[in-house]
């Protein structure tokens, strides 16, 4: 769909995916820790929304719905 991108661009996109996966893992561990300590409902929902933002934005490419650029 898109023009072929150079290997450097591909490596950059892979890095973004790796970064997002790390963020999701860290937030999940923080979520788990908060649940076992002070179990605050608002913080748990907020952390869920942070994770959802990363998944929708980077993994599901929601911007490609209205952007002229392709998802990759």
């Amino acid at each position: 769909m898109s023009e072929r991108k150079p290997p450097a661009a591909k490596a950059g996109i892979y890095r973004t995916g790796y970064f997002v996966a790390i963020v999701l893992a860290v937030v999940t561990v923080v979520e788990f820790y908060i649940a076992l300590t002070f179990n605050n409902f608002a913080i748990m929902i907020l952390l869920g929304l942070v994770k959802a933002y990363f998944v929708v934005n980077y993994f599901m490419h929601i911007k490609s719905l209205w952007s002229e650029e392709e998802s990759h």
Binding site: M1, K10, G17, A21, A25, T28, H72
Partner: peptide
């Protein structure tokens, strides 16, 4: 939960890979 998160990462890699042939 961690297993499912990891699977999202590998799926993302697969999608990027085919986008670059």
């Amino acid at each position: 939960t961690v297993v499912l998160l990891l699977s999202s990462y590998s799926m993302n890699r697969a999608e990027i890979a085919i986008a670059h042939n």
